[in-house]
Design a protein around this nucleic acid. Structure first.
Length: 140
DNA sequence: GCCAACGTTGGC
DNA sequence: GCCAACGTTGGC
């Protein structure tokens, strides 16, 4: 059963554009247990939105999980993990946090409910809805 | 095991 | 730059 996720990165630390250039990357620096647990639940082939936090504040594109969790060599405690991601496609246009907040159908997204969680699940309905939003222009 | 102090995230 | 939310740490 395929699952959907949302992963945040500050664009000046690691941007969507950079991931597209590099083609593939380990998702590192997660040091939060809930985010780690979500990463540990990821299966190869799952898809994730790439969200620019702080500056940008919008979903930029879709990634594919290409390698399931493995120990983070940078973590001396051995508690945290990495997954590898690859870009799948950019969204036709970014979908902003502001729009998501203004959309009743997305009010339960973990992105809004737990704003500090950097790796969160996305339901099938939320996923489809955001893709649809991205496919049309911003409503006036 | 409680909880105060502290640190971090991330929107504004 | 500020600060609310919230996770972590450490003294007791």
């Amino acid at each position: 059963m395929m699952a959907y996720w949302l992963m945040k990165s500050e664009p000046y630390v690691y941007s969507w554009e950079r991931l597209c250039r590099e083609g593939r990357a380990p998702w590192d620096d997660v040091r939060n247990y809930q985010a780690r647990n979500n990463m540990m639940a990821m299966q190869k082939g799952d898809e994730a939105f790439f969200y620019h936090s702080n500056e940008g504040r919008a979903i930029q594109g879709v990634m594919t999980i290409v390698k399931t969790h493995y120990p983070d060599p940078a973590d001396a405690t051995g508690k945290f993990v990495l997954v590898d991601v690859a870009p799948k496609m950019p969204l036709p246009r970014p979908v902003t946090l502001k729009e998501i907040k203004a959309t009743p159908a997305l009010a339960d997204m973990a992105l809004l409910r737990q704003s500090r969680l950097s790796v969160s699940p996305v339901s099938q309905a939320e996923w489809n809805y955001i893709l649809k939003m991205a496919a049309r222009a911003i409503a006036a």
